[in-house]
């Protein structure tokens, strides 16, 4: 999968955006890149990149979160300057909140991203309720584009069933991802596959590790 200077990750909430963003960040950092992760999620207080502070610190990844995330002040303030962040050296990964509601926060920064070497990836999961049909996934993608004032540039097929994901799950998801990409007229950037499933690697497979976990897993 090709990484750009700025990588914006959007999708249905629960599609696996955050886990994908964490994988992208760690892989790039391991290759020696300087990486900044921006957590733009001001909707959901649970399971977000701001939870990975320590993991990112251990891997020299800079994490930028809404100022009051996980604090006592219940104000979803975004007071960082994304324009200056994208002008600095290194890669930027932006983890956007789910759905069009979450993508609204991205809209505020749309002008900062214009003209940069960027991609906006739309993460889809065949097994998520309300986006099981390619048409439903497409409808949501258009809503996200409208809310964010930005256009998606590629599809990431992250079809999974959480802890029940197996080879069949991945195979069932493949035609779905292709259908979404075809209907959207966008390239299918990659298919995410849990590294432990030992799927034969090809150009399109992006092996991922699971970082967004339940405490008993």
């Amino acid at each position: 999968m090709q990484i750009k200077k700025v990588n914006v990750i959007t999708g249905h909430y629960g599609s696996g955006k955050t886990n994908f963003a964490v994988n992208l960040a760690l892989d790039a950092a391991k290759r020696g890149e300087r990486v900044t992760v921006v957590d733009l999620d001001i909707v959901n207080p649970y399971f977000r990149t701001a939870d990975f502070e320590q993991l990112f610190a251990d891997n020299d990844i800079r994490l930028i979160v809404p100022t009051y995330a996980n604090s006592n002040l219940d104000i979803p303030a975004l007071n960082f300057d994304l324009a200056s962040i994208v002008r600095q050296e290194g890669l930027v990964i932006v983890d956007v909140g789910g759905d069009d509601e979450g993508a609204k926060a991205l809209g505020r920064y749309a002008h900062c991203l214009e003209g940069t070497d960027m991609q906006m990836l739309y993460v889809v999961n065949r097994f998520r309720y309300l986006t099981k049909e390619p048409e439903e996934a497409l409808e949501l993608m258009y809503l996200i584009e409208q809310a964010s004032s930005l256009k998606c540039t590629g599809i990431v097929n992250n079809s999974n069933l959480g802890c029940d994901t197996d080879i069949d799950t991945v195979n069932t998801g493949i035609p779905y991802g292709q259908a979404v990409a075809e209907k959207a007229g966008l390239p299918l950037v990659c298919v995410c596959v849990n590294r432990s499933l030992d799927v034969k690697a090809d150009d399109n497979i992006y092996p991922i590790d699971i970082y967004v976990k339940k405490l008993w897993e």
Binding site: G14, F127, R128, L161
Partner: peptide, 9 residues
Amino acid sequence: EKTLMKGNE
């Protein structure tokens, strides 16, 4: 068929 859902959903 199984689907992936949040508890609230």
